[in-house]
């Protein structure tokens, strides 16, 4: 520790002091002016609570939301990856119409606020899809079944399945454009010589893409894709607006019913941070490991 302190410049110390004063001022304002009563002791109960009915600890709203966020992120990123690869290929297509459609989709997402995009996707696409496929009654059917443990493990409460699915679809559609751009960059980074070598042994365009270009491209863009996954986890908060029961939505509800404004939001922030930060550490380690090989 003293070694660490010795390395601090006086400017560093100044910055730290200013920061401390800033935090203190805010603290005083919340504590004094707003007359806010901190009730941190109530938070753990909203993460895990003891259920007298089942006589065991069960997740409460915050943890439920956290788990839902993880579920949504995983499914949405798988879907976004599939859609993104298709989009990325479309962006490099030799067919002008295909290329223009993919480009239009991207520009649409780039130039409209995310919230608006989310609502449009929700009302125009995922709602329609869910109604058309009759997912609502199908999910209710499963929810009524006895042994639906696998379903519950994968998707949580099956009665909320339709909302979960529309959340996943909306989020995946939203992120797919960015995944698509990453994939396109990967495909275009593969040298022309690779295409020519594949052509000259008689491979067609599809085989070339599948066996030569895509494997190399996807390997190259794994780091940015991992980053995009973390972005997706953060972006998932936005689908609380369409009433998907994930962490942010649950926090809003909790705050509304308990007025634990600062405690609840700080806890939620911490949960997001821990999740995203550990993911980024994990990816960094994996990347370093694959570099060594």
């Amino acid at each position: 520790m003293p070694k660490f302190l010795k390395r601090l410049h006086w400017l560093d110390i100044l910055i730290l002091v200013i920061l401390a004063v800033f935090v203190a001022v805010i603290w005083v304002r919340i504590d004094g002016t707003l007359n806010y009563k901190w009730r941190w002791d109530r938070i753990p109960n909203y993460i895990l609570r003891y259920s007298t009915k089942y006589e065991t600890w069960v997740p409460n709203v915050l943890l439920q939301g956290f788990i839902a966020t993880i579920r949504i992120s995983i499914f949405a990123s798988i879907l976004a990856l599939i859609l993104g690869v298709i989009l990325g290929i479309a962006r490099c297509s030799t067919n002008l119409t295909v290329r223009m459609l993919a480009r239009t989709y991207l520009e649409f997402l780039r130039n409209i606020p995310p919230i608006v995009v989310i609502f449009i996707f929700y009302f125009f696409l995922s709602e329609q899809l869910i109604t058309a496929l009759n997912i609502e009654s199908w999910a209710r059917g499963i929810a009524r079944q006895e042994n639906n443990a696998v379903w519950e493990f994968l998707f949580g409460d099956m009665r909320r399945f339709p909302s979960l699915v529309s959340g996943i679809i909306v989020l995946a559609l939203f992120e797919s454009a960015f995944v698509g751009e990453i994939v396109r960059a990967g495909i275009q980074s593969i040298p022309k010589g690779q295409h020519e070598a594949a052509k000259s042994i008689g491979m067609g365009r599809i085989d070339t893409l599948r066996y030569i270009v895509l494997p190399q491209a996807l390997k190259k863009v794994t780091p940015p894709l991992a980053n995009q996954f973390i972005t997706l986890v953060k972006d998932s908060a936005i689908i609380s607006l369409i009433s998907v029961q994930e962490l942010t939505f649950k926090t809003v509800e909790l705050v509304a019913s308990t007025r634990l404004i600062f405690e609840a939001w700080l806890t939620t922030a911490a949960l997001y941070f821990v999740l995203c930060f550990s993911l980024s550490m994990l990816f960094r380690r994996l990347e370093r490991k694959s570099d060594q090989r």
Partner: peptide
């Protein structure tokens, strides 16, 4: 066809 830059498939 054999190219100046070999163009083997690196993966």
């Amino acid at each position: 066809m054999v190219f100046q830059q070999f163009n083997l498939f690196p993966h």
